[in-house]
Design a binder for these strands. Sequence first.
DNA 1: GTCTATATAGGGATAGAC
DNA 2: GTCTATCCCTATATAGAC
Lengths: 203, 203
Amino acid sequence: MIETVSPTGPGPQPEPAEEASTRERILDIALELFTEQGYEKTSLRQIAERLGFSKAAIYYHFASKEDILFELHLRVHEFGRGVLSEIDPAEMSPAAWLALLDQLVGQILGHRALFVLHERNRAALDELHRERHDASHEDLDVLFRQVLANPAIAARDRVRLACTLGAVMGALVLTGDVFSDVSSEELGALVKDAARDLLAPGS
Amino acid sequence: MIETVSPTGPGPQPEPAEEASTRERILDIALELFTEQGYEKTSLRQIAERLGFSKAAIYYHFASKEDILFELHLRVHEFGRGVLSEIDPAEMSPAAWLALLDQLVGQILGHRALFVLHERNRAALDELHRERHDASHEDLDVLFRQVLANPAIAARDRVRLACTLGAVMGALVLTGDVFSDVSSEELGALVKDAARDLLAPGS
DNA sequence: GTCTATATAGGGATAGAC
DNA sequence: GTCTATCCCTATATAGAC
């Protein structure tokens, strides 16, 4: 599954200097097409065409199509990690959850395209996840699911959490660009308000 | 794009009598595989294998792979229509929205697998929708998006609606089977409570 | 770093036997 | 209603020239 693509090395490493590398351009186009059409439906030829060179050239930069998706997945993962690091899985107070979701809202607003990609390609990404159980893979999704499935928490609270998470997703990633006329700041504030109403202890 | 599959007719019509038809079994397996693996990743051979016959046999029942997806889509659509029929697009009061979402919760709980399929195959279904703009296609999604994009509505309310819809989706379709230990009735009631809290006028 | 050419596999779909 | 056999196409991926 892992192979070098050239006799001397695995392609361009993240070099120090400035350079809007071809690798980065491939990832940009892939992000766009994978999101629009879906991962499986998108061909490497299609990506190459957009960039003005041939399909085979991509293999200089990536060992496989899956690797492109994986690289994009890793980025979502990094941003998710920022959220994750502030979490004590044992600590389940509404206040802690609100703080977590506030962070999440910020991350999504900052890297929305990546989260949309993730949401629209769950099947492909689930498979990736299955195949590469190696990397330090503590997923945000996994954490959420653990909490939501925890029988020690009251059903009402579990459902509340799912709804709150859904509310964030609903307003920020499931809705296409219907809020393109609303500023990120306002959108984020409104979503956080909604989350607060859902998790308010007295509600 | 439309072709008959046998010299004398388009395959088995919905006949009056009892008959857990092969056609239905194909749809069941397809629903399962399309949801798990995604539409594009699922091959007809795979579906046929599960049913114990060969790939070509499917073509007696469906003119194309896309037609299988379309048939499943039509069913989501029927159930969505039940919700749609009660809607006056001009009427946007929170109460009306709550009633709409209550209906939606009921439909999702009754046909959850179809909604999950829909959610996990947006790309493929969007394309279907693009290609077949013929059929009486007033989609629930389309209606929602129209409302959410309507500039005549205050941004706060638009976001609230998106959050509420997201809350419903989050608890009922995005979360896998984490609530399999909660009864449909309880789950539905809890979700409706959350929706109420989000749309409450004074919140 | 990108090319052409090619290997290889699998997909959807059709024809015609049974 | 299901089969086998086949067609045709496109996909990923590799080899090797430039």
